[in-house]
Every structure is written in C-alpha cells, then in structure tokens.
Amino acid sequence: MVDIKTYDNDQIPAWCPGCGNFSILKSLKQALAELDIPPDRVLMVSGIGQAAKAPHYFRCNLFNGLHGRDISVAVGAKIANHNLIVIAESGDGNTYGEGGNHFIHNIRRNVNIKVFVHNNQIYGLTKGQASPTSDLGMKTKVQIDGVLSPPFNPIAVAIALNASFVARSFSGEPEHLVAMMKSAITHKGFALLDILQPCVTFNRINTFKWYKDRVYKLDDSYDPTDRISAFEKALEWGDRIPIGVIYVNNRPTYEEQLSQLKDSPLFKIPITGIDYSDILKEFR
C-alpha cells in the first residue's frame, strides 16, 4: 500500500510561509497515494522557478533541468519508457513563457505526460516580475506602469490545439485539486492541469481571497467533451473563474501511433540479436 508518507523525503521546502505551493505538494502526494502508484513508477521533471522546486520534495525519480524546458525532457523520457508516469511540474513563467513553444507542440503531439502548472501569475523565484499570465495593468518592480500585454490564456490555447485533457484547479481547494490530479494522471494522453496558486510574497493582487471569491466548481451538467462550451469556459476570467475538467478529447496518443512502442517500451527492446549486416555493407 502506498500512502502519502511514501513520497516524503528529508528536504525542507524553501518556500515562504503561507505559499500556495505547500498545498499543491501535499495534494500530489495524496493523489499518487490514492491511486496506489509506487514512487519507482513516477518521474517528476521540472524546470526552474519556485514551482519547479516541488519535485525536490518528493521521494521518486526526478529530473531537474532548465527554465522552460521540462516538457521536452518529459516527452523524451516518456517515449523511452512509456511505463513511467511522467509529470512535468513548473510555474507559469516557465511553462507558458520561456517554454511556450514546447507547450504548444507537445499538446499537438499528445504524448501521455502530465503537465501541472503552479500558476501564480508572477515570476516568484526572480522576485516578482510579470509573467505571461499576469493580468493586464498589473504593476511590478519591472512593469512599473503596469503590464501592457493581455494575459496568456493556457486553457483556451490548449483547447484550440485540441489538447487531450484540460483542467483547472486551485491550491486553496485541496480536495478538488486531488481529484483533478487523479483525473489527469489516469487520463490517457497529454493532460494540462493549471493550478491557481497564490504567491503571498510578490503577487498582492491575486491573493487567496481573490481566488476564493471567484472560483466555482463545474458540476455534472457540464459536458467537457463539447469543445464550443469548453471555449466558453476557457474565456471566463474575472468575477467568476471556473475550476474543474474543462475539456477532454480522447484522441490517440503519440506513443500509440508508433509501431516501435507497441510491444514494449524502447528501453526494453534488446539491441542484440538484430542482423544489421546489410546496413553495414552500405558503409564498407
């Protein structure tokens, strides 16, 4: 039996007291425990940022790379060993800004990885500059006169690219968050989970209360397979912010379409016993 402690290690999170990241950390451990997934089956990949520190606080396989590049690493690992549950976990700046290109093209590719984004609408680690999801007009130490560009809408972009699974949750709703994480992990295909995460130190606008006053849960009457209503939900941002599974599209994964991966993961296919003498002849 896997329980939440299975995933604990001896590292002490280097986050500010009250940071929204703590509940995300705990919720993911909870979700993995409830799904009874042992740590050796999990690979967490992260980029750079406050959110990207999260995998350091898990006892499982970990790859910590570069700011913005985690999704690409996750894709490589998943293709080499599709038995692994691969979770890319980073921040909004990392995933939607510096890594935006990888975000777009891997949604199209539909590799069965999970992308969990701690969306605090700010660059936390570099001390409070605007991120791609910062609201228009937000003032920071660099954007002194306010952010000039309208925010990146990850949910709408993902739906536009026909993402396989798109959900949003809030770190102040741990039960909901655990449920969303479980759905994302068990979904077959690329899964984006955008998690609203208050940064108590640098984002004084989008606070716990700000989110709490606005988020509402999508109920059973909502059909996430309907792309048009998913778009409508994606565009809702302001007084009311929907959380839940917003869009599901069960299309074939990248791995399923590769004949090489049908029988076993790449890393298990022996490279001995293959007759390549014909190929070698060409180079003689």
């Binding site: 913005g68 510096e98 500059q129 791609p132 130490k141 660099v142 002194i144």
Partner: peptide, 28 residues
Amino acid sequence: TPQTEIVQVFSEYVANGEVHTEFVTVES
C-alpha cells in the same frame, strides 16, 4: 539571478522618465 537587479533598477529610471529608452520586457 544575479542580473535581475540591473533590469529592475533600470526599469525605475524608465518609469521615472529619467531616460528616453524603449524598455522591452520579453519572454526569454
């Protein structure tokens, strides 16, 4: 890090109108 402060202090000069610089914040 450790360059961040250069950008931060300079953007104050921009905001205060102490320079005529077009200051472009980008995504990478």
